[in-house]
């Protein structure tokens, strides 16, 4: 299921790239409302891309990344110089803080 879903999203990504430039309008110089029609296509396509990206972020974020965003492997064993960096998270970020420290929900 996972790999099928991944293949589907990759196909979507390729289509998004492939038609950002409307190749089928090559040489076309029709002007609609003051802008070339190919530019309108592009503007619309970028809007569509944003919607698709948002859907991906909602439904499939993490797909294909290959590592679990899960628990930190004991921070002490790879203590970089910054291991005490998160000493004072801002209040607004506090709940996100627990998310990114990989604590179980």
């Amino acid at each position: 299921m996972g790999s099928l879903e991944l293949a589907g999203w990759i196909a979507v990504g390729i289509v998004l790239c492939a038609l950002a430039i409307p190749w089928f309008l090559w040489g076309n110089s029709t002007v609609v409302a003051g802008l070339p029609v190919w530019l309108w296509w592009h503007v619309g396509w970028m809007g569509l891309a944003s919607v698709v990206f948002r859907q991906f972020a909602r439904r499939a974020w993490g797909l294909g990344i290959g590592i679990e965003p899960g628990p930190d492997p004991s921070p002490s064993s790879n203590s970089g110089p910054e291991s005490e960096r998160t000493s004072k998270p801002k209040p607004a970020d506090a709940e996100l803080e627990s998310e990114r420290r990989g604590e179980p929900p």
Partner: peptide, 8 residues
Amino acid sequence: LLGQQYDY
């Protein structure tokens, strides 16, 4: 993700 885990 990797930066979070290993402080890169």
